[in-house]
């Protein structure tokens, strides 16, 4: 597999009052296509910043980020919006579904922006929520909402799926179930997946584990992933 993501000497500095805070400091990182990468690190290590930069939610202060051959670090607001619409799917800890749209409408929403989108009904069926299409997010459990979120992210048919603490708001049993769905879906649709978490156990199901500390990459290890069922949650 070729590298699909390249970070070259990427820094992100935030100004907090008169102080400058380096969230990322000269990061170099390559991620392979079709693999699952888990980014681990304590709070404030810079892992979410890394994910936000990769997802086009934020731009680096310096350095370049190349995704599938496209330098996204210098893209304008509209350019980044197009990038987010076509290339990446997001799954958040807080699901971030639109409360005034039904489950199906939340998934179908992406058809308004993504050219190469997938069938929303099929996506819902794939995450096991075919019967819940007419419900509103508030009528679903947390696990179900996160599955809708996965369906919505993948319905855009993105190259990369980015997950920020996807099980952080769930109990462990539901979290395992969501991870299973995530793994099955990304495998089924052949997506490059990046999960940011502070849960060490999740790292065991990844192809690559990146450890971040103080805004720098501490290690980047490629491993043989364990199955979800093998992990002691």
């Amino acid at each position: 597999m070729e590298n699909i993501v390249e970070f070259k000497n990427v820094s992100r500095v935030y100004k907090v009052g008169d102080h400058e805070q380096k969230a990322l400091d000269g990061v170099d990182l390559s991620l392979r296509g079709g693999q699952m990468t888990v980014i681990l690190g304590p709070s404030g290590a810079g892992k979410s910043t890394l994910l936000n930069l990769l997802g086009g939610l934020d731009s680096p202060t310096s350095g370049t980020i190349t995704v599938d051959g496209q330098d996204i670090s210098k893209l304008s607001g509209d350019g980044l919006a197009r990038y987010r619409a076509e290339k990446v799917g997001f799954v958040f800890q807080a699901y971030n579904l639109i409360p005034t749209l039904t489950v199906r409408e939340n998934v179908a929403l992406v058809s308004e922006i993504a050219r190469d989108h997938l069938d929303p009904d099929r996506m819902l069926a794939d995450v096991g929520l075919a019967d819940h299409g007419r419900k509103f997010p508030s009528e679903l459990s947390g696990g179900e909402q996160q599955r809708v979120s996965i369906a919505r992210a993948l319905a855009k048919n993105p190259q990369i799926l980015l997950c920020d603490e996807p099980t952080g708001a769930l109990d462990s049993e539901t979290g395992v179930m969501v991870l299973k769905v995530l793994l099955r879906m990304t495998g089924q649709y052949g997506k490059t997946t990046v999960i940011v978490t502070h849960n060490q156990n999740i790292a065991r199901i990844a192809d690559t584990v990146v450890r971040v500390k103080n805004g720098r990459i501490q290690s980047c290890v490629t491993q043989t992933p364990e199955s979800v069922d093998e992990v002691d949650w």
Partner: peptide, 16 residues
């Protein structure tokens, strides 16, 4: 605000 942020993350442009 959150809904619009979610739309923005999904790839909706400011104009839209």
């Amino acid at each position: 605000y959150r809904e619009m942020a979610a739309l923005k993350v999904l790839g909706f442009r400011d104009r839209q």
